[in-house]
Design a protein around this nucleic acid. Structure first.
Length: 503
RNA sequence: GGUCCGUUCGUCUAGGGGUUAGGACACGUCCCUUUCACGGAUGAAACACGGGUUCGAUUCCCGUACGGACUACCA
């Protein structure tokens, strides 16, 4: 039975790379009929950020990556918050010392810091530990006594040199590390909390995790993890590892970071995050107007592809097609243009009614009040020209309120005395049409234009500007129909007033 | 610096010893449309480099270059 976990640290907003990691774990679990667990890794009390946990949960819900077990989702293998498991780690850490695979160390952070200052590349390892203060050098008895007096200590992994540690990564194949190159990682910190390395192994074992799918940044420490499994005698049930390629910045070098969102003016978080300051607050895909399905599709393909020429996949299809073997090895650049295009496609593919339920809250947030019928017509009018849900009320604001600005350049080019007279007459005509349907309007208006000896190009652009203010917009007669006769006539009059004031 | 990972169009990628190296995004041109967009057609655009192995390498191996991650009592 497949059991996988997503184990974020609640240090702030969950970055999009984390969402992808969660997604891949989820896809494997769903496909294999397994279990997907959310575990909160809050062992660094200094970096804990209130609200981050809720943010993570809400983000996963939004993208539809729902845990089967975990913080906020129940389950029998809890607690799923590491700060609630403190005693468990302590027990295992001491057990590892008993087994001879770890030791107590008393060197203070300051002492070690000084060593690093003095020595270029100082590391706490098999070479240096014999000259440091730990239970290996001062003895078990003395150590016990010092601990009993309340002196602070850490527990470190005792890495024995001279071994080649092989990792069979499902994505990268055989990866080898020499144990003599590994440092004696801290397992239990002076505050009694475990480090990631210890907590991760203990929890994965206790929670019977079968596959660890995580970011590539963990690959270098995986050898330590293997040593830990061996030290505890858990080799037989050690999970299989898969290290995902990193998501890179859209421009420049390096992996995508939280700051890149503000830097490039793009969202890099699923949901908006309100920090203490504006500097600490970020936009989210949801608030920008993305559909969760589009985000999932985009993210799924950032580092994975099932093969073939298809690239639009629903969650159900992703679950069916997903396979670790098809995950790429190289870092994938975050391409916002691509994300937008997915969103546009997803909006196009959605029917008006479904779209209306998503757009209505945006409409109401702007203070507009519209009927379902009107909203649905407005949506079908704008649908082909929006990228984001928010475009319906931003770009297409003119469907809900009077025109804010007129395209003066075009107006200046086309508006003149003759046109003004014809326009006034046309306005009268609009007021008298019985049927206010696009095809009828078009026919009547075009006939009128011809009658006046003018060309469509003389009138239509102006009509458009009167209705929506800009040369970019939905079909004129369709727009007039949606707006209705009253509003259409009002807008025509308003523009004439606007023009007469100027002259 | 050390350790480890990686490298197919600008980007995400498919493919894999013999292919006109395929798709998508973005970009160019045309069609549709007296707007914008959508849609359709079309174009330009890639196997990092050098050695092997092989009848034949983009594909396998080794180097080089370049990129990346890690190198905390952070995860």
């Amino acid at each position: 039975m497949v059991r996988v976990r997503f184990a974020p640290s609640p240090t702030g907003a969950l970055h999009i790379g984390g969402v992808r990691t969660a997604l891949y774990n989820y896809l494997l679990a769903r496909q294999q009929g397994g279990t997907f667990i959310l575990r909160i890794e809050d062992t660094d009390q200094g970096r804990y950020v209130p609200g981050a946990e809720d943010y993570i949960i809400e983000s996963l819900r939004w993208v539809g990556v729902i845990p089967d077990e975990g913080v906020g989702f129940g389950g029998d293998e809890g607690p799923y918050r590491q700060s609630d498991r403190k005693e468990i780690y302590q027990k295992y850490a001491h057990e590892l010392v008993q087994r001879g695979h770890a030791y107590y160390a008393f060197d203070t952070p300051l002492e070690l810091e000084n060593r690093r200052q003095a020595e270029e590349h100082f590391t706490y390892n098999h070479l240096t530990r014999s000259a440091l203060i730990n239970s290996l050098t001062i003895g078990e008895e003395v150590s016990k006594r010092r601990i009993a007096t309340g002196e602070s200590f850490v527990i470190r992994l005792k890495v024995m040199p001279g071994r080649s540690i092989h990792i069979q990564d499902l994505i990268r194949g055989d990866v080898v590390f020499e144990s003599s190159e590994l440092d004696d990682k801290v397992l239990l910190k002076a505050d009694g909390m475990p480090t990631y390395h210890l907590a991760n192994i203990v929890d994965d074992h206790l929670m019977r995790i079968t596959h660890v799918i995580r970011g590539e940044e963990w690959l270098p420490s995986t050898a330590h993890h293997v040593l830990l499994y061996e030290g505890f005698g858990w080799e037989a049930t050690m999970p299989k590892f898969s290290h995902l390629p990193l998501i890179m910045k859209p421009f420049g070098n390096g992996k995508l970071s939280k700051r890149d969102g503000a830097k490039f003016g793009i969202p890099v978080f699923p949901l908006a995050w309100k920090g203490e300051t504006a500097e600490e607050s970020f936009d989210g895909f949801r608030e920008v107007g993305f559909l969760p399905g589009a985000v999932v599709n985009f993210l799924a393909l950032l580092g994975w592809h099932p093969g073939g020429d298809e690239d639009i996949f629903s969650m159900e299809e992703l679950i069916q097609l997903f396979s670790i073997e098809h995950i790429g090895k190289g870092g994938a650049r975050f391409d916002y243009e691509k994300a937008k295009s997915f969103n546009q496609k997803y909006i196009h593919a959605m029917d008006d009614a479904a779209l209306a339920t998503l757009v209505r809250p945006l409409v109401e947030a702007k203070g507009y009040q519209v009927s379902d019928a009107f909203l649905s017509r407005a949506i079908s009018l704008m649908k082909e020209r929006v990228t984001f849900l928010t475009d319906f009320v931003e770009t297409g604001y003119y469907l809900f309120e009077p025109v804010r600005v007129y395209d003066e350049e075009t107006l200046q080019k086309r508006w003149n005395g003759d046109i003004a007279a014809v326009f006034a007459e046309l306005t009268e005509k609009f007021a008298t049409f019985d049927l206010f349907k696009a095809p009828d309007l078009e026919e009547a208006v075009k006939a009128f234009i011809q009658e006046k000896g003018m060309k469509p190009g003389d009138i239509l652009p102006l009509l458009r500007i009167a209705l929506v203010g800009t040369m970019k917009g939905p079909a004129v007669f369709e727009t007039a129909e949606v707006l209705g006769r009253e509003e259409t006539v009002a807008r025509l009059k308003r523009m004439m007033d606007n023009q007469s004031v100027k002259s």
